[in-house]
Simulated scan of single mutants.
Amino acid sequence: MASRPEELRTTTPAPWPLPRFGLGCAPIGDLYGSVDPGTAVATVHAAIAKGATLLDTAPKYGDGLSERRVGDALASVDRERVQISTKVGWLVGEGNGPSPAFGRDDVLRSLESSMRRLGVDHFDLVHVHDPDDHLDETARHTLPALIRLREEGVVGAIGAGMNNHVPLAELVRRTDLDVVLVAGRYTLLEQPALADLLPLCAERGVGVIAAGVFNSGLLANPRPDAPYNYHPVPDAVLERALAIRDVCVRYGVPLRAAALRFPLGHPAVVSVLVGAATPEEIADNLDLARHPVPTEMWADLRTAGLLDPLAPVP
């Protein structure tokens, strides 16, 4: 596997502190629809210009397409300006869709392929990707392989990324993680990760990256045909999202602004990922993330039963 020259391996920059916002690069891997290659590159550049310098990608995003497009964007960017996060656990690029691959050799093979697609020789952060059904193998083989690469300086920090907060908490208990990425389970709409994952991470000094903060689109624009966790939205969930929006409107706060700001109120959350497929989309979201949110608004959401009373707010 390619790696940094021996004399530089211990000087790989750690990813801390991470920027408050990063770019989720699944959309430029054609997650929701075809994206023009030039638009994909411009989206990455727009995110970096706005300070969202954590670029989160994965082989699983578009069968390597997202990584290739991030790599194209990096060709004209100072590598030290950005933090590159990718993932292991699924081998791609053979035309048959992703296949689970959580062994030590799989990790090396996956990262070597990611290096080629991204045009880099080290990673600031590597997650084990969706190991929900492979927790034992992840604990016994995948993470020890990543720990070794962390010791060698090829990887700056290691983590795990899932949509389910319960197995993430189990991995935090069992292994030596630096960070976790939790998608959709700590948002303005719902906070189940507050029961176990977030306090555990705060106790153990594990950073939390919050992703899916719009719950795959519902909090961006609540409506009957909006997606919720990549599926049609149930009526009760839509009703809750609309009620949250109504409270925000009373305070003149765009719903997206509140959704982007909310996770950062928890002391364990170190960064929020914002997915985007165009430069305009990422610029608009990052501008909204700076919108002021009155303290009284969070209090009203609690009073209305729309926010967990134990959830810290910004």
Rank of each mutant, 00 (worst) to 15 (best):
A258M: 04
A259Y: 02
A276F: 13
D284W: 07
A289K: 03
A283P: 11
G252I: 04
T278C: 12
A276I: 11
G252L: 07
E281M: 12
L273K: 07
V247K: 01
D284G: 11
A258G: 05
V274L: 05
A257G: 01
L286I: 13
A258I: 01
V247G: 04
H266Y: 10
E281F: 07
T278K: 13
L264A: 02
A277G: 14
G265C: 11
L288F: 13
P263C: 06
Y251N: 00
L286D: 03
A257F: 03
R261C: 06
R261K: 11
L273Y: 05
E281A: 15
P263H: 09
V270E: 15
V270Q: 15
Y251M: 00
A277F: 03
L286H: 03
R250L: 03
A277Q: 10
H266I: 14
C248G: 04
F262L: 08
C248D: 09
P292A: 02
A276V: 09
I282L: 09
D287T: 12
D287M: 02
P294L: 07
L260N: 05
F262R: 09
G252H: 02
P263Y: 08
P263R: 11
V272W: 03
V249H: 05
G252V: 03
A289W: 00
V247T: 06
V270L: 14
S271D: 07
H266K: 10
A276M: 05
P294Y: 07
N285W: 09
A277N: 12
P279K: 08
V247D: 03
G275D: 05
P263V: 11
P267R: 10
V293I: 12
H266V: 12
R250F: 01
R290Q: 10
L255A: 04
Y251V: 00
H291Y: 06
V253D: 02
G252Y: 03
F262N: 12
N285Y: 10
A259P: 11
A283G: 12
I282F: 11
E281I: 02
H291L: 03
Y251P: 00
G252N: 06
F262S: 10
A276S: 05
R250N: 07
V247S: 03
P294I: 08
R261V: 09
A289R: 01
T278N: 13
L286W: 00
A283S: 15
F262V: 08
A276D: 07
A259M: 04
R290S: 07
V272E: 08
A276C: 06
P279A: 10
E280F: 09
A268S: 14
V253Q: 03
P263D: 08
A257V: 00
A283D: 15
P279D: 12
L286Y: 00
P254F: 06
E280H: 14
D284K: 14
V274N: 06
E281Q: 15
P254E: 07
I282S: 06
R256N: 10
R256A: 14
L288R: 01
P292M: 04
